[in-house]
Design a protein around this nucleic acid. Structure first.
Lengths: 205, 205
DNA sequence: ATATTTGTTAACCAAACGGTTAAACCATAT
DNA sequence: ATATGGTTTAACCGTTTGGTTAACAAATAT
């Protein structure tokens, strides 16, 4: 049974580390637990990745490089603001189903160590608002959408899409709903959220 | 120099524990660091609160009991939906300036241990959507606001207000802005957010 | 075939951790 | 003055933790 690609020990470790780190965070994770999840000896973790910190950074960079394209989709493509919002909102749920712990993980770790994001900043593909700002200004100018700052619109889009997946247990408790009802609510948000945003900013004839 | 109220050792410990736990989370906090911040011996922590877990729960319950009234304000008072949204949005920033780590802290810890919120549930004052649901349904019926589920509106209000304070470092990095610009953006959101929501749901004549 | 490099493990280590203990301190009552 | 009971501390303890070591196994090169 030879090891195919993405089944090397190094990848097994990275996958196990991803699972543990994203569930429990850097501080709550134990090297032994990662080794167990990977089904290998703890010393092997240090053989491939020198320290807990370095293994963590590998996981974090991977996670971040998954999120960045999602945001760049809304910031740097050429469709209209309205289309961008509809697309992003519709796609985000699918993305969340694939990576349920990702936003919580990134947000918590970036709060824990804000300097950490500076390391990402230089990399190509780091989300940037420049193009989006021009586009919003242009559509405000042309009268397609109401006056709004691009930064505020961007924050609102992120908030409405991401927040429910970060605060899931709170929302479930307050709304007093079970897993299935929550899932249905999120499914509804695929259109609910984009309608909500567009309703607010679109100029009606 | 006698100890006035709220300056007892027990309170000093609770304050120190709040500072450390809310900054670093349960897993990232050390009893020694809390003792240092309180300026006392580590054994005293165990004298007043038996264990790290119990000290943490005291801090968490305190934090939660600060957040709950904020939410109940929007759920259980008698003003119109529009007034509630404007009030909540305007007040939330002031609340955040007083307790900058609170939402991050609660969200992260509730995610770490979702069963934890069940302990809070029974308590009086636990936020509940029942009244808000009726009110939204009534205003939809009467034609004041467009058709929307109370749960979705509640999620949207929470998301737009809370998210920026949970994802601050990310937003700053993406928008490429400094502390002062960010603070100004948040200040603007006092009216920006309520306008945004009301614009979306209000039926215009 | 055999030497050499690469991968893997059990056993180990020092530091850090949450928690305990026993003695000292200090205000107050007797 | 001194006994009392709550408060505070330094020193200590057992366990857990990230990390290392030295030996072993399995490929790979010669």
């Amino acid at each position: 049974m030879s090891k195919t690609k993405n089944d090397t020990t190094e990848d097994q470790i990275l996958t196990a580390a991803k699972n543990v780190f994203q569930r429990k965070g850097m501080d709550g994770s134990r090297m032994q637990e990662i080794a167990n999840e990977a089904g290998i000896n703890k010393a092997l973790l240090h053989y491939y990745y020198r320290s807990k910190q370095m293994l963590f950074e590998a996981v974090f960079k991977n996670a971040f490089s998954l999120l960045a394209p999602q945001l760049n989709g809304i910031l740097n493509d050429d469709s209209s603001i309205e289309d961008k919002i509809r697309n992003f909102t519709a796609n985000y749920l699918t993305f969340m189903n694939k990576h349920p712990y990702l936003p919580k993980f990134i947000i918590h770790e970036v709060n824990r160590n804000p300097e950490f994001i500076l390391k990402m900043r230089d990399k190509t593909g780091f989300p940037n608002l420049d193009k989006f700002k021009k586009q919003v200004a242009a559509e405000v100018e042309s009268g397609t959408i109401k006056s709004i700052k691009a930064e505020q619109l961007f924050i609102n889009i992120m908030a409405l899409n991401i927040f429910p997946f970060v605060a899931t247990p709170l929302i479930k408790a307050f709304a007093n709903i079970n897993d299935q009802t929550f899932k249905q609510l999120m499914e509804d948000r695929k259109t609910e959220v984009s309608d909500f945003i567009i309703n607010s900013i679109k100029v009606k004839p």
